[in-house]
Amino acid sequence: MFLEIIEVFTSGLINGSVYALMAVGLTLVYGVTKAFNFAYGSFYNLGGYFAWVLLIPLGVIGGYFSVFFMAIPFFFIVGYLLEKVLISPLRKYDDWEMKVMMLTLGLSLFMDFGYQAIFGPRIKSLPGIIEGTVQVGEVVLFQQDIVIFILSLSGMLCFWWILNNTRTGMAVQAVAQNPAGAQIVGIPKDFIFAATFAISTMMVGFGGILLCQKNFVDPMGSTDIMIKAWVITAFGGMGSIRGSLYAAFILGMLEAFVGWYFGMIHVQIATLTLLLVTLAIRPRGLMGRE
C-alpha cells in the first residue's frame, strides 16, 4: 500500500512537471497577448510527430540529443509564424478575442486531421530516452521518469532565467503588466507578441516530445492535453506564471491519485469539479490578479 502510494506520487510529480512546462507557456501567451490559443494541444502532438519523424523514418544521428537540438529552432519558428500569419491580422477587429478562439479551434481541427492524413489514424510509439530502473530503498523508479523530471525542470528554469535576466524577457513581462507603458518606453509590441508565441510553442513542443516518448503519439490526443493546459491555467489564475506552476503540480497529483483510486475515467470529472469550485470561490483562479 505504502509503496503503491509512493509510485502514484512520483507519477503525479512527473506528469505535474511536464504539465507545468506546458501550462507556463500557455499562461504566458495569455498574460502577454491576451490571445486564447485553442490549438495548443495540437502543437503538443507536433512535438511527438517531430520526434517520431526524426527518430524512426529518418533515423537521425545522435538520437534524442539531436531531436531536442533541432526542436528548439523548429518550434520557435513555427510559433513565430503562427502569431505573425494567423493571429496578428485579427487584432484590428473589435471582437478579436472571439475570432482568435475560433481560428485556433479551426486550426487545431485542421492539424489533428492533418496528422491523421499524413501519419495514419493509429497511435505511434517512440523509443524511450533511456531504459532501465533505479532502486531507492524499496522504491523502484524508472530512469526515464527521472530524465523527464530533470529535463522539464531545467526547461522551466531556463525559461525563468530568460524571463528575468534578458532584455527581451523583461520586455515580455512589461507588456504583460502594462501594454501602454511598454509602448511608451519603446518596446515593439508586435515583436514581443510573436516572440511570446514562439517561446510558448517551444515549451509545448518540448513537453510533447517528453510525454509522447513516455506514452505514445495519439493524433486525437490533443484536445485532452489542450483542456488540461487550459484548466491548469485557469485554475492557477490566467497570466500568473507562479499560479500555473502550483496548479500544474496540484493537477498532476489529483490526476494520479484519482486515476489510481477511482479509475482514469473519473479524472476529467474530478478536474472539472476542482476547477468549478475554485472559480466559484476565487473567480480569478489561485493567483490571478485583478
Binding site: M170, Q173, A174, N178, G186, R289
Partner: peptide, 18 residues
C-alpha cells in the same frame, strides 16, 4: 503607466529599452 509588479530599478532599466 508604470510596470506595477516590477521594482523601481527594473522600471528604470526598461526605460532604457530602446
Amino acid at each position: 503607466e508604470l510596470f506595477p509588479y516590477m521594482t523601481v530599478m527594473e522600471n528604470l532599466k526598461l526605460g532604457a529599452y530602446s
